[in-house]
Amino acid sequence: MFDSIGWAEILVLLLAGLFILGPERLPSAAAWIGKSIRKVREFATGARDQLRNEMGPEFDELRKPLENLRELRSFDPKRMVTQHLFSDEPANGTKPNGYTPPPPASTPPASSTPPPLSPGEKPPFDPDAT
């Protein structure tokens, strides 16, 4: 639950609570917050267990997309780009976007460059390309 909150943030919150609530009411406020969090967790666990009992095996199928979303929370674009740029191609020869490189040609293709235009000659015009 406190994955993204560090000790410095907790200390700042405690100091702010101490100044706002005062030393007399701070322990009771912390106890109330703890009880509230415990109740919310119990409600969530009870609801999950009730859904699991009512839905049966369909509940696991429902949770699969949620687990995929949870994996996306740990997505690091910098790591993914570095991995794809500097790693070798997969064993099946396809890239992540589905591109399969053509097999190497045994003979180089003949160059099909058109001859240069004569002075005053108009270049070919392709109306579909404009």
Rank of each mutant, 00 (worst) to 15 (best):
K64D: 05
T113P: 00
M80D: 11
L72R: 08
A29G: 04
I10S: 08
E67Q: 15
E61M: 12
R63P: 00
P119L: 06
P116V: 06
L26H: 03
R73C: 03
P116N: 10
N53V: 11
P109K: 01
P103K: 04
P127I: 02
E9S: 14
D3C: 03
T100C: 03
P77S: 10
Q83M: 15
S74N: 09
G46N: 09
P109V: 02
S74A: 10
K39N: 08
E121T: 05
S4N: 14
N92W: 01
Q50V: 08
P90L: 11
W7D: 08
D60Q: 04
L66F: 12
A16D: 08
D88Y: 13
L62R: 05
K78M: 09
T82A: 14
R79D: 07
I37S: 08
P57S: 15
I33K: 13
P123V: 01
R41V: 04
L18C: 00
G93L: 04
N97S: 02
K78Y: 06
S106N: 05
T100G: 04
A31D: 05
V40E: 14
T94W: 13
A31T: 03
D128Q: 12
A110K: 13
K122N: 14
R63V: 14
E121D: 06
P119S: 05
L14K: 06
V40T: 13
L85Q: 12
P109C: 01
E71F: 01
Q83R: 14
A29N: 02
L62D: 06
P90C: 07
L51V: 05
M1N: 05
F86I: 05
M80K: 09
L21T: 01
A8T: 09
D49H: 06
E67I: 08
A47D: 02
P90V: 07
D76N: 15
A44N: 06
G56H: 07
S87R: 13
D88W: 13
T94Q: 15
V81T: 13
A8F: 15
F19D: 06
L26C: 02
E121R: 07
S111N: 10
T113E: 08
A47R: 11
G120L: 00
L18P: 00
N68C: 04
L13C: 07
R48C: 05
R41Q: 12
R48K: 11
D76G: 01
K64V: 14
P103I: 01
E121K: 07
P127C: 02
I5G: 02
I5F: 10
I10M: 14
S28W: 12
E121I: 03
M55A: 15
N68H: 10
I5C: 04
A44R: 10
P23K: 05
A30L: 15
